[in-house]
């Protein structure tokens, strides 16, 4: 069956089936957009939390770390309740925008938390060193971005991995509507539930190949942590 799945994966990829390509395209587009927006917010907030001091900072960090591990389906439920309740007049439920919002909310704490975990101390040391050398606030921030680039990139990779592999939240808020909100993971979930294991394995293989390709492209920019 697994072998059959791989054969079907190759067949699917070269099938020229528009539905398959649109599913792959939608998965990539939403995940990349969510990584971009959630990631950008996460980078700024992660750096701010790393280098600033304010009352309640520990609590904010605890909340971020909690949300790093929140089950996507729970977050999806929150987004669903908001979109179906206070924001129901926007008619966003079961749309691609709702999926993008849910994924952005999933990516944001991953990027924020990972930047704090991986580089908080380094960031503080860089700021302190730059201060002693007479760097202005502008120069300090510039230095911070260049020096923490590997950590930022790693955090974005983690954020994207979370987004592209996500199923629970987008199933709830997107509805897995054929031709509209169906993405690779919800396609796999649906086919598995219907017993079409070969189709699921096929799409799973494509998903893995895509993730591998994206990591390969990123490795071109920054190879150190792949060594």
């Amino acid at each position: 069956m697994i072998l059959e799945g791989f054969k079907e994966a190759i067949a699917l990829l070269f099938s020229l089936d528009r539905e398959i390509y649109s599913i792959i395209g939608l998965s990539l587009a939403i995940s990349l957009l969510a990584t971009l927006s959630g990631g950008l917010l996460g980078i700024v907030f992660g750096i701010f939390l790393s280098i600033s001091k304010f009352p309640g900072k520990r609590m904010v960090k605890k909340i971020i770390f909690t949300f790093m591990g929140v089950p996507p389906v729970v977050l999806g439920l929150i987004v669903l309740l908001v979109l179906a309740g206070p924001l129901s007049n926007l008619n966003l439920l079961f749309t691609r925008t709702a999926m993008y919002l849910a994924q952005t909310l999933l990516v944001f704490p991953i990027v924020t938390g990972n930047i704090i975990i991986s580089s908080e101390k380094t960031q503080q040391q860089i700021i302190a060193t730059a201060t002693t050398l007479g760097a202005s606030k502008k120069h300090q921030l510039l230095l911070l971005f260049t020096e923490t680039k590997p950590f930022i990139l790693l955090s974005l990779i983690l954020g994207f991995s979370r987004a592209i592999s996500e199923v629970g939240a987008i199933m709830l808020v997107g509805g897995n509507i054929r031709g509209e909100t169906r993405v690779m993971t919800t396609y796999i979930a649906l086919n598995t539930s219907m017993g079409n294991y070969a189709a699921s394995i096929a799409m799973g293989t494509i998903l893995l190949l895509l993730a591998f390709m994206i990591h390969t492209i990123i490795a071109k920019f920054r190879g150190d942590f792949y060594d």
């Binding site: 040391q125 002693t132 050398l133 007479g134 760097a135 230095l143 260049t146 020096e147």
Partner: peptide
């Protein structure tokens, strides 16, 4: 201007030369 030199100094991710001239460059 007083500069403090850390007991465990941090060098930036660039060449030795670029590190040394950093304070000159930012000024």
């Amino acid at each position: 201007f007083a500069t403090y030199h850390f007991q465990e100094p941090i060098l930036f991710n660039r060449s030795v030369y670029e590190n040394i001239i950093y304070p000159i460059k930012i000024r």
